[in-house]
Design a protein around this nucleic acid. Structure first.
Length: 211
DNA sequence: GCGACGATGGGCT
DNA sequence: GCCCATCGTCGCA
């Protein structure tokens, strides 16, 4: 997607990202997954957003141009991937919370910290169904913070993979994990995810539309 | 300096 | 459902 795609309000970009294809070039392999869950974080007034603390070393990327990757570290061990939104100078981002794995699944298995624990117990779609899981599976860490998702030749980017998402498949809820955030931000319905019916349809691979 | 805590995940009860 | 690993960041001395 081009930079214009990311220039809007996080709430709009978060919904637009559902069904898009997260792509990663790693060691000569192409890893891809359909984005199935997102959350919007918008501005300094949003007390769930890291930008509530203003411009700091950590939040700097969120204040920069849209279409950059904001990758941060949390819980002492996990990385999270966001796409920066809004015009240059206004902070906001969309957290990529889950993808449906498509290509490079064996590489994803290797990249997960405990690949031995993944098979045959867990179906592949469970390997990338959390924000920290997908960063592991796609080899994303602090090195990717700030990279331009829209630039030519980058090894991390998002495309329109041609996957159609029906309105019936989209669930809208409040954001996850904001335990100590005050209202109304704690309950702001800024999370979107593709439900089980939608995932089932993605699994059949017949949701592709013609360009 | 220091303490609290986190946009989580995995294991166990 | 509960517990906790593990450390960067922030707020408040």
């Amino acid at each position: 997607m081009d930079q214009h795609f990311y220039t809007g309000h996080s709430v709009d970009v978060a919904q637009a990202l559902l069904g898009k294809l997260l792509c990663r070039k790693l060691d000569g392999h192409l890893l891809t997954g359909i984005i199935t869950e997102t959350e919007a974080y918008q501005g300094e007034s949003d007390l769930g957003c890291h930008a509530k603390s203003g411009r700091t070393n950590r939040t700097e990327v969120m204040y920069g141009p849209p279409g950059r990757a904001y990758v941060y570290f949390t819980y002492g061990m996990h990385w999270m991937l966001n796409a920066v939104t809004n015009p240059d100078g206004f902070p906001g981002a969309v957290l990529i919370r889950a993808v449906f794995p498509l290509d490079g699944i064996t590489q994803m298995q290797t990249l997960r910290k405990r690949p031995d624990k993944l098979t045959p117990h867990h179906p592949e779609k469970r390997w990338t169904d959390g924000p920290a899981k997908l960063c592991q599976a796609f080899g994303i860490s602090g090195r990717e913070n700030g990279i331009n998702l829209c630039a030519e030749g980058v090894n991390l980017y998002i495309t329109d993979g041609g996957t159609a998402i029906l309105p019936d498949w989209v669930e809208n809820t409040s954001r996850i994990g904001l335990y100590t955030v005050h209202e109304p931000w704690k309950s702001m319905p800024w999370r979107w995810r593709i439900n089980d019916l939608g995932i089932e349809n993605l699994s059949t691979g017949i949701t592709q539309y013609a360009f």
